[in-house]
Amino acid sequence: GTEDLKEEAKKALKKGDKERAKRALKKAGLSEDQIKKFIKEVL
C-alpha cells in the first residue's frame, strides 16, 4: 500500500538512493511537488 511505499522511500533515502525513493513515491501516487517535499522532509 501507500504507507509501505513511503517506508520504502524513506529507507532508500537514508541509503542515499534518491532514484529508488522517487520510483516508490510515484507508485504511491504522489505528484512531483509532493515527492520533492517528501524528500526534503526526510533528508
Rank of each mutant, 00 (worst) to 15 (best):
I39V: 05
K22C: 12
Q34W: 04
I39Q: 02
L5V: 05
G1F: 13
E3D: 12
K11W: 09
D4G: 10
G16K: 03
K26W: 06
L25N: 00
A21V: 04
E41M: 12
G16C: 06
K36D: 15
L30I: 02
K27E: 12
K10D: 02
K10V: 13
K22W: 15
E32K: 07
I39C: 05
E19W: 09
D4I: 10
L30R: 00
A24S: 06
S31Q: 04
Q34T: 04
K11S: 10
E19M: 09
F38R: 01
I35T: 03
K26V: 11
L25I: 01
E41H: 09
A9P: 01
K11P: 01
I39G: 00
E3Q: 10
R20M: 12
V42T: 08
A9R: 01
K36T: 12
E8Y: 13
E3A: 11
A12H: 10
A28P: 00
A24T: 07
E32H: 07
T2Q: 11
V42I: 11
L5M: 06
G29Y: 01
K6S: 04
E19L: 10
K22E: 14
K22P: 00
D17N: 07
V42C: 08
R23H: 09
F38C: 02
I35M: 05
E8C: 06
A28F: 06
A21C: 06
E19R: 08
A24I: 15
A21I: 03
A21P: 00
F38Q: 01
K40T: 12
L13F: 04
L30K: 01
R20K: 11
K11Q: 14
E19V: 08
D17G: 03
E7V: 07
L30V: 02
D4S: 12
K14R: 13
L43V: 06
K10I: 15
K11N: 12
S31F: 03
Q34S: 05
I39W: 05
K40H: 15
A9T: 02
K14P: 00
K11R: 13
G29L: 03
A28Y: 06
K27C: 05
I39S: 01
K27F: 06
G1E: 13
G29A: 02
E32C: 08
K18E: 14
L13G: 01
L5N: 04
A28I: 06
K15G: 10
K11F: 06
K6Y: 15
L5P: 06
E8M: 10
K18H: 15
L13S: 01
K22L: 15
A21N: 00
K26F: 08
E7K: 08
K37C: 08
D17T: 02
A24E: 05
I39F: 11
K6H: 09
D33H: 07
K18Q: 13
K27L: 14
K18Y: 15
K36S: 11
R20H: 10
V42L: 09
I39E: 03
L25A: 00
A21E: 00
A9H: 01
K27M: 13
E32L: 07
A12E: 04
